[in-house]
Deep mutational scan, measured.
Amino acid sequence: SELMNSSKLIRMLEEDGWRLVRVTGSAHHFKHPKKPGLVTVPHPKKDLPIGTVKSIQKSAGL
C-alpha cells in the first residue's frame, strides 16, 4: 500500500492556503481562511497510510 510523508501532505495543505493554528502532541491542526472546518494531520510521520491521506485531503477539499 502507498504511504505518504506527513511533511509532504502539510506542504500540499499550505499551498492550498491552510495555516497551522494549533499543535496538540503530534496532532497539527490547520484552518483555512475561506474553507470550513479544521483539518488535523499527525506529524511528524514518515508513513501515513494512503487512506488517512485521502481522508485528510477530502476534509481539506483538495
Rank of each mutant, 00 (worst) to 15 (best):
G51K: 13
V53P: 01
W18Q: 00
G25W: 12
E2G: 10
V39L: 07
K58N: 11
P36A: 09
A60I: 05
R22K: 14
P42I: 05
K34Q: 11
S6L: 03
W18G: 00
R11Q: 13
P44H: 04
L3H: 11
E15R: 09
V23T: 07
Q57M: 15
R19M: 12
L20H: 03
P36M: 08
P42D: 06
L13R: 00
H43S: 03
G61V: 02
H28L: 06
V41L: 05
R22M: 11
S55N: 11
N5E: 13
K54V: 11
T52L: 15
G37E: 05
S7D: 12
A27L: 15
T24H: 11
V39W: 01
F30M: 06
P33C: 10
L48A: 02
R11L: 11
I10H: 02
K54T: 08
L3G: 14
V39A: 04
I56L: 03
R22H: 10
M4W: 15
M4E: 05
H28V: 13
V21M: 09
L20S: 05
D47F: 15
V53N: 02
H32V: 00
P33M: 08
V21W: 13
T52H: 06
S1I: 13
R22D: 07
E2H: 11
S55H: 14
G51M: 10
H29D: 08
K54R: 14
E14M: 11
N5Q: 12
M12V: 09
W18F: 02
S7T: 14
H29M: 15
H43Y: 04
K35E: 02
S59D: 12
K54F: 04
V41R: 01
T24L: 10
L48D: 01
T52E: 08
G37T: 05
R11E: 12
H32P: 00
G37F: 04
H29T: 14
I10L: 05
P44N: 04
L3A: 13
V53Y: 04
R11Y: 09
H32E: 00
L9N: 01
E2W: 07
S7W: 15
P49K: 07
D16R: 04
E15L: 12
K58T: 10
F30S: 00
P49S: 14
L62A: 04
V41I: 06
T40Y: 13
H43P: 02
S6V: 03
E15T: 09
E14F: 08
P42G: 03
L38Q: 08
L13T: 00
R22A: 09
I10D: 01
L13Y: 01
I50H: 10
K8L: 12
I50Q: 10
D47L: 11
L48T: 03
I10V: 05
G17C: 06
K45R: 14
D47K: 12
E2A: 09
I10G: 01
P42T: 05
V39H: 01
S1A: 11
G37D: 05
G17V: 00
V39R: 01
E14Q: 10
D16A: 07
K31L: 11
K54N: 08
K34Y: 14
G61H: 05
L3D: 10
H29K: 10
K31M: 12
V23I: 14
G61F: 04
L9M: 09
W18R: 00
K46H: 10
W18T: 00
L38A: 07
G61P: 01
E14T: 09
H28K: 06
V23Q: 10
M4G: 08
H29S: 14
I56T: 02
P36T: 09
G25V: 13
L3W: 07
T40C: 12
H32I: 00
P49G: 09
I10S: 02
R11V: 08
K46Y: 13
A27P: 01
L3V: 14
G51N: 14
H43R: 03
V53W: 07
